[in-house]
Amino acid sequence: MIRNDNEVALLKATATKGSQSPSDLAEVVGSNRTYTLMSHALTVGASRKFTGVDVAGQVTEYVSDLKNRYPAVDILKPSVAEALLRAALGEPERLEGINPNDAGALLFFLAHVLLVDQQLDDAQVESFVDQVLRLASSV
């Protein structure tokens, strides 16, 4: 698997609090590739965060917590956030009826916050990057 330095930096910035701005790196990587990487980042992050019996309940609770923590973030629409997370966890039908502009805007924010909340150490960040790049290379 070929590792592009800009893509690696984008994924590390997505998973790391206080790192280089992911949005600056996204411009370098390009919008289509960034969307692909962020979609897979959300899938990897969500599969690590939400496990067990009541995944739907965990997602609802997490989104409610996000809305309380980030009340000024206009793009954080609970129904869209839940749909994105549930789609990332294997329920793509949850995206039916969701405005693509709302989903696209929220995807980047949601992936970043979800991963930063997990407080990954350096080895876990590297594992995350490798996993996302493997998924993205199979597209």
Rank of each mutant, 00 (worst) to 15 (best):
D65N: 06
L84A: 09
F128E: 02
G57S: 08
Q124P: 00
G90D: 06
P22T: 06
R69Q: 12
Y70K: 08
K17I: 14
D130V: 02
A46R: 02
S137A: 12
R3F: 11
A81I: 06
E96N: 12
L95Y: 12
A72M: 13
L10Q: 04
F108M: 11
R48K: 11
R69G: 05
E27P: 00
V44A: 02
V73R: 12
L42C: 06
F109K: 12
R3H: 06
V116W: 14
Y70V: 06
D121M: 09
T51K: 08
A103P: 01
S39E: 10
E96P: 00
A41R: 09
L76E: 12
L66T: 02
F108L: 13
S21A: 14
A56H: 09
R94C: 05
Q124V: 05
T60G: 04
A111Y: 07
F128S: 03
D65V: 05
D122Y: 02
E126R: 02
G18I: 05
D24S: 11
T51S: 13
L133T: 00
D102N: 11
V80N: 02
L115E: 07
K49C: 04
F108G: 10
E91V: 04
I75S: 08
L25M: 09
F109P: 13
R69K: 06
P71V: 07
G52C: 07
V8H: 03
T14Q: 04
K12E: 12
A15W: 03
R48E: 09
N6Q: 15
N101Q: 15
L106F: 10
G30K: 04
G90F: 13
A9T: 05
A41I: 03
V53F: 15
G90P: 00
V63Q: 05
G104D: 06
K67M: 15
V125N: 06
L107M: 03
D54F: 05
L133D: 00
Q119I: 01
I75Q: 07
P22Q: 03
Q124E: 11
L76K: 07
P100A: 04
L133W: 00
V73Q: 15
V8G: 00
L106Q: 11
S31M: 09
A9N: 05
D122N: 08
